[in-house]
């Protein structure tokens, strides 16, 4: 990976409406978190898309290994009851 001579990278999360979760929208560069939030407001909420912004230093994000798919992501086969299709309901009923 290239060593950056630019400003640090920040991952930006925006909550677009009350009642929703923050969603990752992209990243930007800024020297500190205050500038990152300020820039994020201009960049990712220009059309009034956001009511709340998180800026997270990209170096602070720790990810799972995508190839390590076993325990983390495979829906445990023994817990099929978590899925709505597990349940039989009368066909003419909207549920």
């Amino acid at each position: 990976m290239t060593q950056s001579s630019g400003l640090p990278l920040w991952e930006i999360f925006v909550r677009s409406r009350r009642g929703m979760s923050h969603i990752h929208v992209g990243s930007l560069h800024a020297a500190d978190w205050e500038m990152a939030v300020q820039n994020a407001r201009d960049l990712y909420t220009r059309r009034g898309e956001g009511v709340s912004i998180w800026a997270v230093a990209a170096t602070e994000i720790h990810a799972s290994d995508p190839d390590d798919k076993g325990p983390l992501f495979d829906p445990p086969a023994d817990k099929v009851y978590r899925h709505p299709t597990f349940y039989e309901v009368p066909e003419d009923l909207k549920l």
């Binding site: 290239t2 950056s4 630019g6 990278l9 560069h29 960049l43 220009r46």
Partner: peptide, 22 residues
């Protein structure tokens, strides 16, 4: 908007392990 588009795209490129400055 075009400046914004540039930033969205650099942001996408950076997920591939390259740096915008570069």
């Amino acid at each position: 908007d075009e400046a914004g588009h540039g930033l969205y795209l650099y942001s996408a490129a950076e997920t591939l392990g390259v740096d915008r400055e570069a």
